[in-house]
Amino acid sequence: MTSAITDETYAELESIAARYPQPRSGLLPMLHLVQSAQGRITPEGIEACADILGISAAEVSGVATFYTMYKRKPVGDYHVGVCTNTLCAVMGGDEIFARLKDHLDVGNDETTTDGKVTLEHLECNAACDYAPVMMVNWEFMDNQTPQSAVALVDDLRSGKEVTSTRGPRICTWREAERVLAGFPDGRVDEGPAAGPASLVGLGIARERGWTAPDRDQGDGGHGVPEQPAQAVEGARVSDDKQAEQAAVEEKAPTTTTAAEKEDAE
C-alpha cells in the first residue's frame, strides 16, 4: 500500500525536470526522488513522472526497470551491498556475502523481517583498492571481513549510529535517494578527503621528494606545492601493510586493521 504523491513531492519532481533543457532528462533523478518519498518505485510515482514529462506510464516504467538502483519491492532502512565482482569476490567478498545471507536469513535482494536491512550483491563499485568492499546506502565500507560485516549489520539493526569508513554518518536509504535526486543533506563536510589507499602513491612521492616537473614552460597556477600535506604522511603510515602486519602481531589497534585483527585472533 502506498499513499499518493504529495503536492510537495510533485513540485519537487517538477523542479528536477526544470533543471534540464529538455524536461525528460530529469527522469533518472526524478525516479530517485520517487524512491525517497515512497520507499520504492510505485505506480503513483510512475504516474506523476509521466504526467510531468508528458510521456506514457509505460515509458517511465520501461526506464525504471532498466536500472538496477530502482526497486519495485520496498527497501529496508539500510541497503547493504556486498561487492562480488571478481576482485572483491576473490579477496573475500564471496565469503562475506555468504555469511550475511546466513546471518540475516535472507537471499539476494531480500529484506529482513524487521524491515531494517536489504541485502544485495553488487558489481564493482569503483573501490577495488579497498577490497573486499561493502556499501551501506551507497556509502563506502572498505576492507571488510565476515566478522566486521556481521558487526556492521547488527549495529544497523540495533539502531546504532554507523559511519562510513571514509565518509559521513550513514543516513537512511530514503534520505540517500533524496541526495541522489539532487537535494543535498548537509553531510558533505563529514569524513576525510580520501581514504588511506587513495593516498599511498602520494605518500611515497612526498617521502622521496618526487614531484611532477617544474612548470618552467608555463606561467599558470597549477604548480607543485612546497609543503607536503601532513595528513598524507599519517595516512601513508597507517596504510603500510608491513606496518599493519606488525601491528597485528603486536595486537596494537590500527584503523585499517581492526577488523583483520579480529579475524587473526
Binding site: S198, A205, W210, V232
Partner: peptide
C-alpha cells in the same frame, strides 16, 4: 633525481578539507 611518481591530480588529496573551494 627522476621522479617515478608525479602527483598532479592526486597532489592535494591529503590536504585539510581538500574538497572545499
Amino acid at each position: 633525481m627522476t621522479s617515478i611518481l608525479t602527483p598532479v591530480l592526486t597532489d592535494n588529496w591529503g590536504d585539510e578539507r581538500a574538497w572545499t573551494l
